[in-house]
Amino acid sequence: MGTMLKIDNINVYYGAIHAIKGISLEVREGEIVTLIGANGAGKSTTLRTISGLLKPKTGKITFLGGNIAGRPAHEIVREGISQVPEGRRIFAEMTVLENLELGAFIRKDADGIRKDMEMVFRRFPRLEERKDQQAGTLSGGEQQMLAMGRALMSRPKLLLLDEPSMGLAPLLIREIFSIIEDINKTGTTILLVEQNANMALSIADRAYVLETGRITLSGDAGKLAASEDVRKAYLGG
């Protein structure tokens, strides 16, 4: 299948801190690709650079053939990339419905928006029950669902997920991951960042391992899950 996203040797800095040191990676249409690594490895930095919140100092990011490196975030979402940020970052003081409406901010097709809202509610029935509630009063799991629903409202071609399992109970993590698989099956390509490498590798097609700003391993998710090095470093033996 065709390449959707191609990152070519990017370097990202926070002031003098060199956070991403020449990363290259690729996401093909229809895939679930996961980026795993320890705290501070640079996973969020990579996602935030793709979505335009950070600008790479050097390197190229190509999405569906066009260069998007350095373009502002509010334009990149219009190209079809939507990010679920680390820690959810829902608009706590707005209602669930308003959060979802903001997810569709770039769209003008009222009918399509309504249909997608129904789709989100089918996927996350708990959001529908709470649609007029302030988003800040939702539980952690519900907030994660809202953040995902909000991201889907822009109808992304590529969905970037930053640690969706963070702070959730095991049962809820399972639920969230099966929803991610389902979103992928209905046609959305996914780049998933996780510390929970076990779960991430179990649903991904391919994986990259990030260590202090560099990619140290990459390949088929199943093979990586079986590899001795990865087991030792990330899967608890």
Binding site: S51, L53, P72, A73, H74, P85, F91, E93, L102
Partner: peptide, 16 residues
Amino acid sequence: RAASFDTETAQLMGVN
């Protein structure tokens, strides 16, 4: 309102 609450995330929604 979104940008007042969290400018970065508002930008991710497409808010300029």
